[in-house]
C-alpha cells in the first residue's frame, strides 16, 4: 500500500468514527476570491508568451513574435490588476515590496511580477512601435526568463500552505501550472497568428496540453485517496471540463488548425478554456479539502502511526507526580 493510499484509508476510518469538533474545519480555507484562479491563468499565459515571443523573434518569425509579445503584455497587465483587486486593502498593494522574503512565495512572486511586467511592457512597445530599441535589447531576454518562474511560482505559493491536497502535491503542482502555461501561450498565439507563421505556437500548445493532462494524472496518482476532492460535487465539473476541453483543443490544433484558420481559433479557445478550468479545479479542490477536517486529521494521524510525524501531544508518567521537580 502506498503512502497516500494508507492516508486515504485513514480518511475513510476517520469518517466511520468522526473525531472532530462538530465537523468544523481544522484549517481555514483560503479567503481568496475569483481573481486568484484567473490570475493563475493570466500569469502563466503572460509568462510563457514572453518566452514564445522572444524565441519567435530570434528565429525570425516576426508575425508570431509581435502577437506573442502583445499576448504577454495582456497577461502581465491583467495579472497585477487581478491581484490588487483581491487584496483586503488594495491601496496598500505596494507593501508587497517592503521586503524580499524567500519563505514567502507571494513575496518572491511579487518581485517576479514586477520584473516580468516591466520588461514585457518594454518588449511589447518595441515589438509594435520600434521605440526603446536599447532598453528592449536587454528587456526581451529578461522578460523571456522572468516568464518562466512567473508561470510556476503560483504553484509554490499554494503548496506553502496547510491546505492538505495542495501541500501534499507540492512536487507535481508546478508541473501542472507550467504545462498549463505552455498550453495557454501556444493556444492564444495559434488562434491569433496566420497558420503559416503559427507552427511553433501549435507545437507549444500541443506539447503543453499533453504535458498538462499527464501532470494532472501524475498528481492524482501521487495523492492517491487524497485526490478525492477533485472528484467531489462542485469540483468534478471543472476537473472533467479541463480534461475534455484540453484534449479536444489539442486534437484540433494538431490536425485541421495547420491549414484552417477557423480550426486554429476554435482549437486555441478550447485549450485556453481547458487551462482556465484546470486552475479552477485546483482552486476549488483545495478549498474543499481545507473545509473537511477528515483531509487534515486523517493524513496527520497516519503520519503519527507510521512515525513519520512526531505528533504534538505528550502523555504523563504517573509515578513522577510524587517526585519533586
Amino acid at each position: 500500500m502506498s503512502r497516500s493510499d494508507s492516508a486515504a484509508a485513514q480518511v475513510r476510518e476517520y469518517r466511520e468514527e468522526p473525531r472532530s469538533y462538530y465537523g468544523q474545519p481544522v484549517v481555514k480555507e483560503p479567503v481568496w476570491s475569483w481573481e486568484i484562479p484567473w490570475y493563475f491563468f493570466t500569469g502563466g499565459l503572460g509568462g510563457a508568451s514572453a518566452g514564445l515571443a522572444y524565441l519567435a523573434e530570434r528565429t525570425g518569425n516576426e508575425p508570431l513574435a509581435r502577437r506573442a509579445w502583445l499576448i504577454a503584455l495582456a497577461g502581465v497587465t491583467v495579472s497585477p490588476a487581478l491581484l490588487i483587486s483581491d487584496l483586503g486593502v488594495p491601496r496598500r498593494f505596494s507593501n508587497m515590496l517592503r521586503m524580499v522574503k524567500i519563505t514567502s512565495p507571494m513575496s518572491i512572486g511579487s518581485w517576479i511580477l514586477v520584473i516580468s511586467g516591466t520588461t514585457t511592457v518594454i518588449s511589447a512597445v518595441h515589438a509594435t512601435t520600434g521605440l526603446l530599441p536599447r532598453l528592449a535589447r536587454l528587456a526581451k531576454p529578461a522578460a523571456a526568463l522572468a516568464g518562466l518562474p512567473l508561470s510556476t511560482y503560483t504553484a509554490a505559493l499554494i503548496s506553502q500552505t496547510a491546505v492538505p491536497i495542495w501541500h501534499e502535491a507540492r512536487r507535481e503542482l508546478p508541473l501542472v501550472f507550467a504545462s498549463g502555461a505552455a498550453a495557454s501561450a501556444g493556444a492564444a498565439a495559434t488562434a491569433l497568428t496566420p497558420t503559416r507563421h503559427a507552427g511553433p505556437a501549435r507545437r507549444l500548445a500541443v506539447l503543453g496540453a499533453l504535458g498538462e493532462l499527464a501532470a494532472v494524472q501524475l498528481m492524482e496518482k501521487r495523492l492517491g485517496g487524497l485526490a478525492d476532492p477533485y472528484h467531489r460535487e462542485g469540483v468534478e465539473r471543472y476537473t472533467r471540463a479541463a480534461r475534455v476541453l484540453t484534449a479536444l483543443g489539442a486534437v484540433a490544433i494538431a490536425g485541421p488548425a495547420r491549414r484552417d484558420r477557423r480550426a486554429a481559433v476554435a482549437g486555441g479557445a478550447l485549450v485556453l478554456a481547458g487551462a482556465v478550468c484546470e486552475r479552477w479545479s485546483v482552486f476549488k479542490a483545495g478549498a474543499l479539502s481545507a473545509r473537511d477536517p477528515a483531509y487534515t486529521v486523517g493524513p496527520q494521524r497516519e503520519r503519527i502511526r507510521t512515525r513519520r510525524g512526531r505528533g504534538a501531544s505528550r502523555r504523563g508518567t504517573p509515578d513522577a507526580a510524587s517526585r519533586p521537580l
Binding site: A48, G51, L55, T59, P149, A156, S159, A178, L207
Partner: peptide, 20 residues
C-alpha cells in the same frame, strides 16, 4: 517546494525550445 517550481520552470524552457 522551490525545487519543484524550479524544475517545472526549466521544463517550460525546454518545451519552448522544443517548439522551435
Amino acid at each position: 517546494i522551490w525545487g519543484a517550481a524550479g524544475i517545472a520552470a526549466a521544463a517550460l524552457a525546454g518545451g519552448l525550445l522544443a517548439a522551435f
